[in-house]
Design a protein around this nucleic acid. Sequence first.
DNA 1: CAGTTAATCACAATAACCAG
DNA 2: CTGGTTATTGTGATTAACTG
Length: 432
Amino acid sequence: MESTIAEIEVQRYEAYMNSGVSWVKEIPAHWELKKGKWLFQKQDRPVRASDDIVTCFRDGQVTLRINRKTEGFTNALKEHGYQGIRKGDLVIHAMDAFAGAIGVSDSDGKATPVYAACVPRISGSVNPYFFAYLLRNMAKTGFIESLAKGIRERSTDFRYSDFGELELTCPPLEEQTTIVDFLDRKTAQIDQAIAQKKRLIEQLQERRQILIQRGVTRGLNPDVPMKDSGMDWIGQIPAHWEVKKLKYVVKILKRIANATGIDVLSITQRGVKVKDINSGEGQIALDYSKYQLVFRGEFAMNHMDLLTGYVDISNFDGVVSPDYRVFTLTNSKFDKHYLLRLFQLCYKCRVFYAYGQGVSQLGRWRFPAENFNDFIIPQPPHGEQQEIADAIDKIELASDKSINQAELQIKKLREYKSILINAAVTGKIKVC
DNA sequence: CAGTTAATCACAATAACCAG
DNA sequence: CTGGTTATTGTGATTAACTG
């Protein structure tokens, strides 16, 4: 933590004193500690006819709801107790303050009664943006949550009255503004760097997908002569490849266990995993004896929902839901790992989706056995299948490495950002 | 009664369970 | 096999139930 702070040119204030409050040990000697209520006053404004709803998000942005998103909200039948919000108000969201829902509004509008709209007690005497940074920092460090009186998870109820009793670090006004400007600048830089890393990850994932797709459907040699495949989802394939219906390649199995005590497997989007049925998590079946057997090396597929389902080769002996599809390779001219890549591609690129059936395309879109059996796949020579599968393994390994690295960098940037904000608003560092 | 506090809703995503 | 349903989580709200 200290070493991360050292990355910026650390400048300390000349003198410090004990703060006397629990959440910060010492503060610059010329700063003051003031209760929230001496600095800010709660406003109770009537709602105007033209007001739109202002929302305070957990990242601290306080803006018209429609600026961020328009869906996923319900509208009140009668906006009982609603209040006016004005641009520049320090807004505290009593329910979600513990998670950082505190900020300065960038718009005029109205909000629900769980919001507190605060203005400086003496106009122009404090910079609300400084205190928004400070309070969000107190949320991030868990201090606001520690004040909770209620029992349920979101009961923190950090209301104006609680805010009013807090002793807040209060630098001179010019310093508040200097700190705000500094943090605005720095956090914008950090956010930009994070956005860049996120784009990089997207690009890596996209590129990986393209390479996998190319390998599976066209092979590794780009110069090989091509022919029409007759499969609408591929188009052309190498001229020396063949095609086969799945029923000549794999066989669907259904072996009901009629016994319990066997490991229950779950088919997740990260592969087949052993499910912990004693943890109380997820859905639990009344009767596991009707589950079907899966042996190591066999395929298991969630064909119940072509949107959220997936397919994998099991690394475990166990049982899965009888609603799932277990099948095994029966054609010695095919390589298991090439097939798996092909199937997984068909999920990710919504190829199977086109062959689905059901009442709802959202959540209930199945892949009927008949369509599965008649599904036509490319058949490269066996040795080439192995080469393709090996090449894809390598691609995946390399891109995983880059993606993990970028994710780690994002994590570090986020940490750095909160450490920086913490240091600036509590006077651990002097900014200029 | 108004203002708080507790409970509940909505919606999306994931991974299924169950009855006929 | 088909159609209907569910548990859980996160994050934005709304609304019912208390309390003085």
